[in-house]
Design a binder for these strands. Structure first.
Lengths: 161, 161
DNA sequence: ACAGTGAGTTGGAAAATCCAACCATTGATG
DNA sequence: CATCAATGGTTGGATTTTCCAACTCACTGT
């Protein structure tokens, strides 16, 4: 992942204080991640994003606005007369690609029928896995322990099964 | 990630055929991933999930039902008289943990203020990164190429920026 | 007898989403 | 010149979801 020059405002969440909830507050609304997917694929224009995601155009407008406000995408004019715009990922938006990658991988793994998109890494099929940079081991549910910082929001019971 | 014994039905999606869209059709509704998060943390009872996510109880009921129908969680009775249940992750649900991990990591990286949950791997801080199992290199936007299988849904332009 | 726990239901208000149609600007076509 | 198509949206109104507070039911503990 990249590293932030400036960090984005953390949105308010309810329930357990959690970066997952905060992240989902920014990109968890309907169509938001699919819009990011299209932009990541290189489809930067409103019409292309609308067509490829299937999102209603008015909803897409509000999503693009809030993703922009959140600092995940940028709206850049590419011509005047008439004014036309395209959307680009910010560094933070780029950093959502691994999330999309993993969502795609989950679907490819667990859902019926052929995966509609194939990925190659360098020149071979991509076999992505989460690794720990410190020790080089694979990250599995068993080897990871969560430590909740906020008092009152304890975990109850073991992590697995 | 785990490997599927039986695969789950792929939900219908609009727009570009895509495993991301299909996955989000199952877990992309409001509160769904947060419910999975709580169950993954070991909080298996309805009240605990409701309290820790902040989800309205009626919505939580419908989410738990559809996650169960999708094959992501299981509802198991742990006593009769009165009938009481707890929720467990199926293997497919377990496999969503890396997705949650990455969402948390994105928030920890890009959002202001201290991350409310810390993770340790074995005995050190977790520094998770996506690696390719085939070649051992890190997976970055530059080194991955998407190949759309479905005709008519081409990618336009380069993957980056 | 009464309060408390656990797992929901219910009714009604509020918000979000969906859809089809519309608008404005400009360049190309007949 | 009238019209068409492309682009990037708006708009109004119907539909669907979500939210909230209160309620239920079946017990258990005091």
């Amino acid at each position: 992942m990249g590293s932030p020059a400036t960090r984005l405002p953390r949105p308010a969440t309810v329930g357990r204080p959690c970066s997952i909830a905060a992240t989902l507050a920014l990109v968890g609304e309907k169509w938001a991640l699919l819009a990011v997917r299209e932009i990541a694929l290189g489809n930067r224009r409103f019409d292309a994003i609308a067509r490829n995601t299937g999102a209603p155009r008015d909803i897409l407008t509000t999503r693009l606005r809030s993703l922009e406000a959140a600092g995940i995408i940028e709206r850049r004019p590419y011509q005047d007369r008439p004014a036309r715009f395209e959307y680009h990922l910010t560094p933070a938006g780029q950093d959502l690609k691994p999330v999309l990658q993993l969502l795609a991988r989950w679907g490819d793994t667990w859902l019926d029928a052929d995966p509609p998109v194939a990925y190659t890494h360098h020149d071979h099929d991509l076999e992505a896995t989460l690794m720990c940079r410190t020790c080089g081991d694979e990250v599995t549910p068993h080897t990871v322990q969560a430590h909740v910082q906020a008092p009152g929001w304890t975990r109850q019971g073991p992590t697995d099964t």
